[in-house]
Design a protein around this nucleic acid. Structure first.
Length: 210
DNA sequence: ATCAAGATTACCT
DNA sequence: GGTAATCTTGATA
């Protein structure tokens, strides 16, 4: 590791909306068999346990979502549509199920390896296609269900560190993406992203800045 | 045992 | 703008 500090247990054992905002500008460090992939978080969504009909934890504990009841700083990985994975950073102390979906990152190091994992030829396709969406993020960083439950505070395969200071004026807020199955919850402005960052997933909701 | 649905993406017109 | 791809999971019987 270099000069940037890992985020602490206290960082994660916190209010989910606060953690969602504070994760912007932080750096994901992924050790993939000795190859270090690094990327900055640029887009997040909060999923808030028992009050949020869009959250997997809303209807209680299952085999899939049980990690959400653990302490913050754990990794919740699930498969979607039979072919993609999504990664969530668990928040709040043990017993309170909540997490933050990492929707987009900006590649920083070993971008060629990310392109290979994404099966993208960077001479033909724009680099923003690499990591501008939750399924793309996991594919580019080689994250799958094998990483379910990773402890970001002590584990060496995946961690998150300080990186760039993002102030409030650089953060845009919108409703969350693709949660039509929970129309009431979809009204909550619980998506956060860095304004004008090219890696933020493109969507009509981007125009609604609070 | 069966079955519908999904915190998505790539590709098509 | 629209839709196919693809399969684990959770709910119901």
């Amino acid at each position: 590791m270099d000069q940037y500090k890992r985020l602490s247990q206290d960082f994660y054992n916190n209010d989910t909306l606060t953690v969602s905002k504070r994760l912007l500008g932080k750096r994901v460090v992924r050790n993939l068999n000795g190859v270090i992939l690094e990327a900055m978080i640029v887009e997040t969504e909060a999923y808030i346990g028992t009050i949020d009909a869009a959250a997997h934890s809303y209807r209680g504990m299952t085999d899939r979502n049980k990690i959400m009841w653990e302490d913050g700083g754990r990794l919740y990985v699930y498969q979607i549509y039979g072919m993609y994975f999504c990664m969530n950073v668990i928040t709040e102390p043990r017993g309170t199920p909540a997490g933050v979906l990492i929707r987009a990152v900006e590649p920083l190091q070993n971008i060629d390896t990310m392109a290979r994992l994404r099966k993208i030829d960077l001479s033909k396709t724009k680099p923003i296609a690499l990591t501008s969406g939750p399924g793309k993020v996991c594919q580019a960083l080689g994250i799958s269900k094998a990483d379910y439950g990773t402890n970001l505070i002590i584990d060496n395969n995946i961690t998150i560190t300080e990186y760039k200071d993002i102030n409030q004026s650089q953060i845009a807020i919108s409703p969350r993406i693709n949660i039509d199955y929970a129309p009431e919850a979809a009204k909550n402005p619980w998506r956060f992203f860095i304004k004008d960052n090219p890696y933020v997933s493109r969507h009509k909701n981007n125009s609604r800045l609070f």
